[in-house]
Amino acid sequence: MAKVLIVDDEKSIRDALSDILQEEKYEVITAEDGEAAWDKLEDEKIDLVLCDIKMPKMDGIELLNKVSEEGVDVPFIMISAHGTIDTAVEATKKGAYDFIQKPPDLNRILVTVRNAIESSKLSTETKVLRKKVSKGNEIIGESECIREVKATIEKVAPTEARVLITGENGTGKELVARWLHEKSMRSKSPLIEVNCAAIPSELIESELFGHEKGSFTSAHKQRIGKFEQAHGGTLFLDEIGDMSLSAQAKVLRALQDKKITRVGGDKTINVDVRVLAATNKNLKKEIEQGSFREDLYHRLSVMVITVPPLRERKEDIELLVEHFLEQVATEYGSAKKSLHKDAVSQLGKYDWTGNIRELRNVVERLVIMSQDTITEGDVKKYVEA
Rank of each mutant, 00 (worst) to 15 (best):
V4L: 06
V7K: 02
E10S: 08
K11A: 14
S18A: 13
D19Q: 09
E27D: 15
V28I: 11
V28S: 10
A31R: 11
E35Q: 13
E35T: 08
W38D: 10
W38L: 15
K45L: 14
D47M: 05
L48P: 09
I53V: 15
K54E: 14
K57Y: 00
D59F: 07
G60N: 05
N65L: 03
N65V: 09
S68R: 14
E70P: 12
P75G: 03
P75F: 02
F76Q: 07
S80N: 07
G83L: 03
D86S: 14
V89M: 15
A91E: 04
Y97E: 05
K102N: 05
P103I: 06
L106H: 14
I109S: 00
V111R: 05
V113S: 02
R114M: 05
A116C: 13
K127D: 14
L129S: 02
V133Q: 14
I140Y: 12
G141S: 13
C145W: 00
V149H: 03
I153R: 01
V156K: 00
P158E: 01
V163C: 04
I165L: 08
I165K: 11
T166D: 03
E174I: 00
A177M: 03
E182L: 13
E182D: 15
E182Q: 15
M185Q: 12
S187L: 01
S187Y: 14
K188L: 10
S189Y: 12
I192C: 00
A198P: 08
A198M: 08
E207W: 11
L208W: 06
K213W: 02
I224W: 06
F227W: 11
T234I: 01
F236I: 03
L237D: 00
I240F: 08
G241P: 02
D242Q: 02
Q248C: 06
V251G: 10
R253T: 08
L255A: 05
D257S: 14
R274V: 00
A277N: 08
L283H: 09
K285P: 00
K285I: 01
Y297L: 10
E315F: 05
D316V: 10
E318T: 04
L319T: 13
L320E: 12
E322L: 12
E322Q: 15
E322Y: 11
F324Y: 14
V328W: 04
A335N: 12
S338G: 12
L339D: 05
K341W: 03
A343E: 07
V344H: 01
L347V: 07
W352Y: 10
W352V: 05
W352L: 08
I356K: 08
V363P: 04
R365N: 07
T373D: 12
T373F: 09
E376H: 11
Y382L: 06
